[in-house]
Design a binder for these strands. Structure first.
Lengths: 201, 201
DNA sequence: GAAATTCTGGCCTGTCAAGTCCAGAATCTG
DNA sequence: CAGATTCTGGACTTGACAGGCCAGAATTTC
């Protein structure tokens, strides 16, 4: 047993499985209301295992959950946005985003974590800040693709616009968790695309 | 002692004072991390008083806090927006909003409550939904004032636009709590005003 | 001045959940 | 097979915090 962690492939797999179930519970109940006991039952592991893989306890686990959600969202968005060269692709991006929430009914891994920022967990804040940053970059890359394809004017500031779009999505998600309706998210995402189209070339 | 509550003027004043301090503590530490003990000390009352005025305990108190914050925000926004007839007034509105957060450094009563939605408190959700609704209406009223003054085209849908503006503000506030910076809020509020100006008449 | 209320302040209980500990079983790896 | 790890499961400790209880003091109100 060295100072650092050495996990076998099996160990890593188990740890990852725990994180996935923990993320699911967190999405369902919010980070604050996520009980280690619930995760234990959901992941079907023993208590010892939980604390074996997360010696720092719940705090460490929630950071892992934040990283997991972050990775998941970014992988999806990156794939959809990096080489977006048609208006149709943007419409599909928007509908995919909205469709996700229409299906999952305001369960949102991002929103579930946002509620937990008050705690003593600056690391979660950092992870989420990184997620927002990368998300902006993915959208900015999509905008630049459109500019390369001469469909959006090069005068449009891709970074600023991308930032505003992410802010709008975030606000829409929050409104969804408050009101239970995706109306505002829908309106905002469509307004974002309208803004892009207003800069048509 | 009748079935319903009968509070003297003094009693009401004390209750209100408790709510104000509770709101301050909540802003500082977030709803989840707000301890009755902290409120007790801050408001300088005894434990019995706390539970005398809030027989349902913390849950009831947080609802009162939500109503208080809601009232405070709306009173301010209503005053600024209901009869906004000049572009300058909009700029002042925006700067007041941004200035507030630059001063208070990401302390936000609204954000502090948003984090607490996971809990078993549907009433807080309702209060916040009402706040957002009224806020939208205040902004829509401001837009209509501009339309009456023939400064914004009557073709602009005041309600939809107001909804998008509130969504953007909300997203900016959330990003502020995550990143600690008001940059995105600033960009979004300015983009909102730019959208209005784009519908100049 | 009597009745009700407002208020103090401490003490006590209950609950919930995080995290520890341990003895032993199963599994993997060289 | 030997030695490490993975894993079970339960019992246990600890701490935080909500909330109740009570005896009595101050204040208000009629």
């Amino acid at each position: 047993m060295s100072g650092e962690r050495e996990l076998t492939a099996k160990g890593l797999a188990t740890r990852e499985r725990i994180v996935e179930y923990a993320a699911a519970v967190t999405r369902e109940r919010g980070a604050a209301n996520t009980r280690m006991e619930c995760v234990r039952v959901a992941a079907n592991v023993s208590n010892s295992q939980l604390f074996h893989y997360f010696p720092q306890g719940k705090a460490e686990m929630m950071i892992a959950v934040a990283r997991y959600e972050s990775r998941t969202i970014l992988a999806d968005q990156d794939a959809r946005l990096r080489t977006t060269r048609t208006w149709r692709a943007w419409d599909e991006w928007a509908e995919a985003l909205l469709g996700h929430y229409d299906e999952n009914g305001s369960r949102c891994g991002l929103a579930a974590l946002l509620g937990q920022l008050d705690q003593d967990a600056p690391e979660i804040r950092e992870v989420l800040a990184g997620l927002l940053e990368s998300w902006e970059q993915a959208i900015a890359a999509g905008i630049r693709s459109m500019q390369s394809a001469r469909k959006i004017s090069p005068d449009l500031d891709a970074d600023t616009t991308a930032g505003t779009i992410v802010t709008g999505i975030l606000g829409g998600i929050v409104q969804m968790t408050v009101t239970g309706s995706t109306n505002r998210l829908r309106a905002t995402v469509r307004a974002s695309i309208a803004t892009l189209k207003a800069a048509r070339q």
